[in-house]
């Protein structure tokens, strides 16, 4: 079972090695396997959305980063608002601090399985727990349609912002998952756990409080 470490701009210094490992795993997955991104000479994958507005959940098991999620308030620039806004023809692009965009999820190859109790479900559980803790109403964004039945299996509800579409040879849809107690309860039941998967170390700021500007506090 993973533990999901909450990493953001304020406690990132505590996770230098883990964060670097995370960027290398991202490079393995999004560059070499998915081919969504061009190779980077240093073997780390970063994009324009890796800013101080992002909060990461690093799923760690046996000392390795095996899975991850990146959450960004949709009130900030995010992938759907900047790249996929045309896929929100039904509802428009959500811009709410309590709606988080969820991106950059991978599972390392040896932890992938189609079973329902695996690493992916554990990460989903951690994301839902974090979202509830932080008072979010929804998490989601651009997703591969192929994997949507996984949400169904967790008994999660996902609201489409528009139609599924083919982009660069793959099918995607923009959809947001409702955050509530029932959604956390159902995924915990599937995993057979009652305990928290989250670990919070160092300074923790609320997910969607405005970032304080240093020096202006006085």
């Amino acid at each position: 079972m993973i533990t999901a470490h909450v990493v953001n701009a304020h406690n990132k210094h505590l996770y230098e090695n883990e964060f670097d490992e995370f960027l290398r795993r991202r490079h393995d997955f999004f560059v070499h396997q998915k081919r969504w991104r061009p190779p980077s000479p240093d073997g780390r994958e970063l994009d324009q959305f890796d800013t101080d507005a992002a909060t990461y959940l690093l799923g760690i098991e046996d000392g390795r980063v095996v899975t991850s999620a990146r959450l960004i308030p949709t009130s900030e620039p995010h992938m759907v608002s900047e790249v996929f806004s045309h896929m929100c023809e039904r509802s428009g692009v959500p811009r709410r601090p309590d709606w988080a965009e969820w991106t950059r999820t991978f599972v390392v190859p040896d932890k992938r399985s189609t079973g329902l109790r695996g690493t992916l479900t554990q990460l989903c559980c951690a994301v839902m727990e974090y979202a509830l803790d932080e008072g979010l109403s929804a998490v989601g964004g651009i997703q591969e349609t192929y994997f949507m039945p996984h949400h169904g299996a967790l008994k999660w509800r996902a609201e489409p912002m528009g139609m599924a579409r083919e982009e660069n040879g793959e099918w995607y849809i923009v959809a947001y998952i409702e955050v509530n107690d029932a959604a956390l309860a159902s995924v915990r039941k599937i995993l057979g756990i009652e305990h928290s998967l989250l670990v919070r170390r160092g300074t923790q700021l609320p997910f969607f409080a405005p970032l304080r500007e240093e020096g202006l506090a006085s």
Partner: peptide
Amino acid sequence: QVQLVTMAVYAGMSIQALSNDVDGD
């Protein structure tokens, strides 16, 4: 095609949600 895929995906999600086999395998 876009309409059909969208409906298929949601039907697929619903079927997974309806299968009540938490203990599954």
